[in-house]
C-alpha cells in the first residue's frame, strides 16, 4: 500500500508530464548583448553570456558581449576568465541580471558571433525569438 505522500508525488509527476506536452512561450528569455539591451528589457527575463572578470561577494562582475561591464547577482561562483551564460531577470536600476539559471560555457566562446546573434534576435528576426 503506497503512502499518501508517495501518491501525491506520483500525481504531481503525472501532472508535470501532462504539462510537458504543452508549449509555453509566455516567459521567453530575450538575448541581450549588454547594458543597452538590458535597459530595454528591465524587469523581464533575459539571457546573456558574460566573461567573468571578478567575484564580489554574491555578485559576479563580468564583461558582456558588447564589451561593457555587467553585474550578475545570486548565482554560484565561477572561475575568472570563464564564459558564463546567465538566464534571469534584468534590472536596469543597477545594470544587473538576477540569475535564475547559470551555465559555465568554459574558457573558449566566440563572443563576437554571440553579439551579432543578439543584434539579429532583437532586430529583423525578433519574431523568431520573442
Amino acid at each position: 500500500m503506497p503512502s499518501p505522500c508517495r501518491i501525491a508525488v506520483q500525481s504531481a509527476m503525472e501532472h508535470r508530464r501532462i504539462e510537458s506536452r504543452k508549449m509555453d512561450t509566455s516567459t521567453p528569455a530575450v538575448f541581450i548583448s549588454g547594458r543597452e539591451m538590458l535597459q530595454m528589457y528591465s524587469g523581464r527575463r533575459v539571457r546573456t553570456v558574460i566573461h567573468v572578470v571578478r567575484i564580489d561577494g554574491m555578485s559576479i562582475i563580468g564583461k558582456s558581449s558588447d564589451g561593457n561591464e555587467l553585474i550578475v547577482r545570486g548565482c554560484p561562483s565561477f572561475p575568472p576568465s570563464h564564459f558564463v551564460e546567465v538566464i534571469g531577470i534584468a534590472d536596469a536600476a543597477d545594470l544587473s541580471v538576477r540569475s535564475e539559471i547559470s551555465t559555465d560555457f568554459g574558457v573558449n566562446f566566440d563572443m563576437l558571433s554571440y553579439n551579432k546573434l543578439c543584434q539579429l534576435a532583437n532586430g529583423e528576426f525578433k519574431h523568431l525569438f520573442i
Partner: peptide, 11 residues
C-alpha cells in the same frame, strides 16, 4: 522532458 530554448518550452 521539457526543453526550454529561451523562446518557449516544448515536450
Amino acid at each position: 522532458f521539457t526543453l526550454d530554448d529561451g523562446t518557449g518550452r516544448i515536450g
